[in-house]
Simulated assay, not measured.
Amino acid sequence: MRVDGLNNEMQAMMLEAANSKPAANAHQVGANFGDMLSQAVNNVNGLQKSSGDLQMRFDRGDADVSLSDVMIARNKSSVAFEATIQVRNKLVEAYKELMNMPV
């Protein structure tokens, strides 16, 4: 079984961050982070749509879709969604910490 969707994307982002040059301004960094975050959310959305499609095809009796395919796709989308929730929680926690800092 290969669970490569989110794991490979996270590793690619880590390598990209390690190899990237320092940005000239904060706006460019914010835009890059926003793009990366948007891409990650879109990937999770794609996994969930794929899982739902496989489940619907299995429910309709498609012979090309097995129960194991449906369960693997469902678990992939579940893990990706849970990881997204954890990232969101960390971002909210960091934002609250920044807002509580004295100026």
Results as ranks from 00 to 15, higher is better:
Met1Val: 14
Arg2Cys: 14
Val3Arg: 02
Leu6Thr: 09
Asn7Cys: 03
Asn8Ile: 00
Met10Asn: 10
Met10His: 08
Leu15Asp: 14
Glu16Leu: 07
Ala17Asn: 02
Asn19Ile: 08
Ser20Asn: 14
Ser20Gln: 08
Pro22Trp: 06
Ala23Thr: 11
Ala23Phe: 06
Asn25His: 00
Asn25Asp: 11
His27Arg: 15
His27Phe: 15
Gln28Thr: 05
Gly30Asn: 08
Asp35Cys: 09
Asp35Ser: 09
Asp35Ile: 15
Val41Gly: 03
Val41His: 04
Val44Thr: 07
Val44Ile: 10
Val44Tyr: 11
Gln48Pro: 05
Lys49Gly: 03
Lys49Tyr: 13
Ser50Phe: 07
Ser50Ala: 11
Ser51Phe: 01
Asp53Glu: 12
Asp53Gln: 13
Leu54Pro: 13
Asp59Met: 08
Asp62Gln: 11
Ala63Val: 06
Asp64Ile: 09
Ser68Cys: 00
Met71Thr: 12
Met71Cys: 02
Met71Ala: 09
Ala73Thr: 13
Asn75Thr: 15
Lys76Trp: 00
Lys76His: 06
Val79Glu: 15
Glu82Met: 05
Ala83Tyr: 07
Thr84Ser: 11
Thr84Gln: 14
Val87Thr: 11
Val87Arg: 09
Arg88Gln: 05
Lys90Asp: 12
Lys90Ala: 12
Glu93Asn: 03
Glu93Leu: 09
Ala94His: 01
Tyr95Ile: 08
Lys96Tyr: 01
Met101His: 01
Val103Met: 01
